[in-house]
Design a protein around this nucleic acid. Structure first.
Lengths: 129, 129
DNA sequence: ATGCTAATGATAACGCGTTTTCATTTTCGA
DNA sequence: TCGAAAATGAAAACGCGTTATCATTAGCAT
């Protein structure tokens, strides 16, 4: 039987207020504001469980460990800030991918990642805190 | 001083005749056709060296270990077959990514990965050998 | 052909993100 | 309020791709 703990609430709360995919590290930092003693194992345990419950889903990106975001969003992509590492949600998509597909291949989906500098990192010369 | 070995030739040859990005495992298998006793350590050592020499470059993809391809190609993307795991080069690109970029962000590049089934996997119901 | 030394193969070790272990704490139904 | 069982924290262990170790082999200048 599932039990409602302060840790679980803090972890889910991190995703609800972030509005962007979070790494386990980011989740830990956010959750520690509410439950200072929370540990990394609990973060991983809860992320794993929330994925099984289809509350969260993984966001895979090239050459980096996965982030996680609330499940059930409409089709979207992400912008990766190379300065601070944050991942941002990007709405909209291009319909023209199909014409890039080689002949005889069956296109089932696509991953698009934009990268550069986010608004909070451009004015500064150091990663935003 | 660099020495020309049969292993090195077999590894570089794997990339030259593949015309698509290869995983270290794929390189090993290809190289073993010419040098049966070649080991994985040699594959990794040579890939690392060829990258330093700018002969190869890494291809990062979401949730998978990197592949490697000959460096110096023009801008392109890849198609990932979900059946056999092969990665294929895809020519062409879409210029409209910039309009997806959030306001105030600086777009410096993008990664696009198409996925589905490749031509040699569609007719069969098993991964192509 | 000879000798120096880079390169190799086998294997152990590494890195790092993630999972497991286990003693302890906490939730929650009765 | 009690007690069973889920959840937690700390730390060890894991998985797997990759790199280092080291004795041996082999390329190449002489």
């Amino acid at each position: 039987m599932r039990r409602d703990t302060s840790q679980r609430r803090a972890i889910l709360g991190a995703f609800e207020k972030a509005a962007r995919p979070l790494s386990p590290q980011e989740v830990l930092q956010s959750a520690q504001c509410h439950v200072p003693a929370i540990g990394m194992a609990t973060v991983y345990r809860n992320i794993k469980r929330l994925i099984e419950e289809a509350v969260l889903e993984a966001v895979q990106l090239p050459g980096e460990p996965p982030r996680y975001e609330l499940a059930g969003k409409h089709h979207h992509h992400h912008f990766h800030c190379r300065v601070c590492g944050r991942l941002y949600e990007v709405d909209g998509c291009l319909a023209a991918f199909r014409k890039l597909t080689p002949k005889g291949f069956k296109l089932e989906g696509h991953d698009l990642l934009l990268f550069g500098q986010c608004a909070r990192c451009i004015p500064r010369k150091r990663p935003a805190k």
